[in-house]
Design a protein around this nucleic acid. Structure first.
Lengths: 145, 145
DNA sequence: TATTGTTATACTCTATAACTATA
DNA sequence: TATAGTTATAGAGTATAACAATA
């Protein structure tokens, strides 16, 4: 389990990883004039298809008001479109436009490239124990929440 | 190095870890009426002692204007204090108050407890290979920036 | 002329509360 | 009466630009 100094170094690595990932992501997204909030909405629509704003709010665990703003931005950017809900006239369905689909597909491609960066050429044993270790600490954090 | 499915799962673990850490941290900080930006400033002052706002801006890699706002908030909360720079009348030195020092020390204590949560009772071999794996991917990301 | 920190302005993400249209 | 989404308002983090005081 490591002595105190080793543990602190290990935690430092984890925190550094968090910072690096945030920087890397926001840098990539900036190039597409995207932001974290809007991108997260895009991912949900990608996974679940046309979806109401209420459902988006629940999926993202934010307020409906917040979704209004994010969808406004995505709509202005031409990435999503609001359409009337077929049976409930109060609700709005949000769906990807062709441009939005293209953007999400490029993000998916970049994610695959990022996976390659992280793991290409890594020895099988190291990859195995890394994922097992990550699994373990993720489980521990979840258990503590 | 794992097949494509295993790799995607591994990246998923890393991203999940990022999200969990952000949630955990912002939850802890909220209890102290702190926020990520202000806390980051607090850490820099803790490490480097009384420091000008210009230096804070460089350390945090944000604009001087941003630092003005963060220090305003910390000062209102009673955690830091602005004092005149001894030789340069343009500059301001920002330093921790007793209350600010107490808050930072508690954060440090919480960080030690978090380290325990992550690593207590983990077999030496697993701890070793986890830190080596983290080291490797941190190095790879840095190399790609 | 260059630097330190500020005011002015703006954008993104987030929240609560009040309100409209619809169920 | 309850729900979907909006307007109104607010606060945090971030940015650029213009400006005052000082170096």
């Amino acid at each position: 389990m490591g002595d105190q100094v080793e543990r602190e170094r290990a935690l430092g690595l984890v925190l550094e990883l968090v910072v690096l990932l945030e920087q890397d992501m926001s840098k990539r997204l900036e190039q597409d004039h995207l932001s974290s909030g809007r991108t997260a909405v895009l991912w949900v629509i990608r996974e679940r298809g046309p979806i109401t704003q209420r459902e988006l709010a629940e999926a993202r665990n934010v307020t409906p008001r917040n979704i209004t703003g994010l969808v406004d931005g995505l709509e202005t950017a031409g990435l999503v479109r609001r359409t009337p809900h077929p049976t409930d006239r109060r609700a709005t369905l949000v769906e990807l436009t062709a441009a939005g689909t293209a953007v999400v597909e490029r993000l998916e491609q970049e994610q695959r490239e990022f996976t390659d960066l992280l793991f290409d050429g890594m020895p099988e044993a190291q990859f195995e124990s890394l994922t097992q270790g990550l699994d373990e600490i993720v489980r521990r954090i979840k258990g503590a929440l």
